[in-house]
Design a protein around this nucleic acid. Structure first.
Lengths: 216, 216
DNA sequence: TAGATTGTTAATCGATTAACAATC
DNA sequence: TAGATTGTTAATCGATTAACAATC
């Protein structure tokens, strides 16, 4: 694998967006794209596109643009998408179900391997061919199966104990959907999906936009 | 309402976090907090806390700290949380169900008013006392009821047509959960929840952390 | 008063944009 | 060759951190 310098965090956060747009272009049968055209589609400047691609070792061609397939594959390499991360879901409620049923993860390099819950009546069921296993069997499971990431879709009051259980069993990445924010440590990486934060920003922007149209 | 200058977008995005931490402090019965203590809990510098609070007109007291209730209320004012935004959910799948069942939105100033879907067999059902209405009735509904925000939890292939339907009916804020990104316009504000982006960043950070522990 | 902590400006750092030579 | 577009540095802009006087 090619060595990459440590990328600025602003670039890392933008790369999944580039990846999504490149995937769409590929599906549309478009094989090359200029920084200007891509920037227009995404609502960013051409300069930023080139600067970002340069920062991870671009594969463009002067006077031509970027090769969509090649560039997309470079992002796949950087994010390790061809290595197929193994993800388990803790909590088989509606949100856990929604994640398990969504086929987009598998397509992009993340395999949902199992779902854990504690409700006896659903243990053994399958969602999208993924088995629901009792949380008591987690230790056993991680001994027999490699697990990269745990998605936490448990009720708010359970999330701290579940996070402890999961990390005590050697899992080093938490994808947390509860409104209780988990903090990363030296050893554990965390992504919090804080839906309420996003909703608050949306509401703020709505009020700001309305105030601009309708000053009083 | 107090007038606020236009806030830097970095500050706006951090404010929901402050708000969550202040709410937790309030629930713990803590009535005042220093920038240092709050920063430590959140993993940010005290300087940034003070700078941020200053930028929206802080309410601290030298030698004392910030009044938790007062500060929290100021954030509520800025985000309009006491005005109760009205939110409708389009798409009563698992994700729509999960949103409808989550009580945290209502508690924080966002009322889920109705859920729309097209599956005849679920029309009229109630989730968490919120009625499922046929999408054909949307126009009628928005004429009779004020709607601020539409949460889009429809299948990927439907999201563009649904976004058009919703905005054609005068709704100006879209909270989009599909992997098809919607772009904001002059008239329409958008928040995209791109779960796959968050997962990719998590996977990247996991690999980077592992590479640091285990260089080879 | 002495100690603590904010309010606020200045300094630094990082991210974005502009510019244009290089080159396909 | 002429036109297009990247690669790359420099300039600008915005965000973060440091510093310390003000003051509770």
């Amino acid at each position: 694998m090619k060595e990459h310098k440590k990328l600025p965090s602003a670039v890392i956060k933008r790369m999944p967006r580039y990846y999504r747009y490149l995937t769409t272009l590929q599906q549309m049968g478009i094989s090359r794209i200029s920084s200007r055209d891509l920037g227009n589609r995404m609502g960013v400047t051409a300069s930023q596109v080139r600067h970002d691609f340069f920062s991870f070792g671009a594969s463009g061609l002067q006077g031509y643009g970027y090769d969509v397939d090649l560039l997309r594959q470079e992002i796949r390499d950087i994010f390790g998408l061809d290595d197929l991360f193994s993800v388990i879901i803790i909590g088989a409620g509606n949100l856990g179900h929604a994640l398990a049923k969504y086929s987009g993860f598998e397509k992009n390099g993340y395999k949902i391997a199992a779902i854990f819950d504690v409700k006896p009546e659903i243990i053994g069921e399958r969602i999208n061919d993924i088995e629901i296993i009792h949380l008591d069997k987690l230790q056993e499971y991680v001994q027999d199966n490699h697990v990269d990431i745990a998605a936490l879709t448990v009720p708010e009051i359970r999330v701290l104990e579940v996070a402890k259980l999961v990390t005590d069993n050697g899992i080093k990445a938490l994808w947390n959907f509860s409104p209780i924010e988990l903090l990363a440590s030296d050893d554990i990486v965390v992504e919090n999906i804080q839906m309420i934060d996003s909703l608050m920003v949306l509401g703020y922007n709505l009020r700001t936009a309305e105030a601009k149209l309708n000053p009083n």
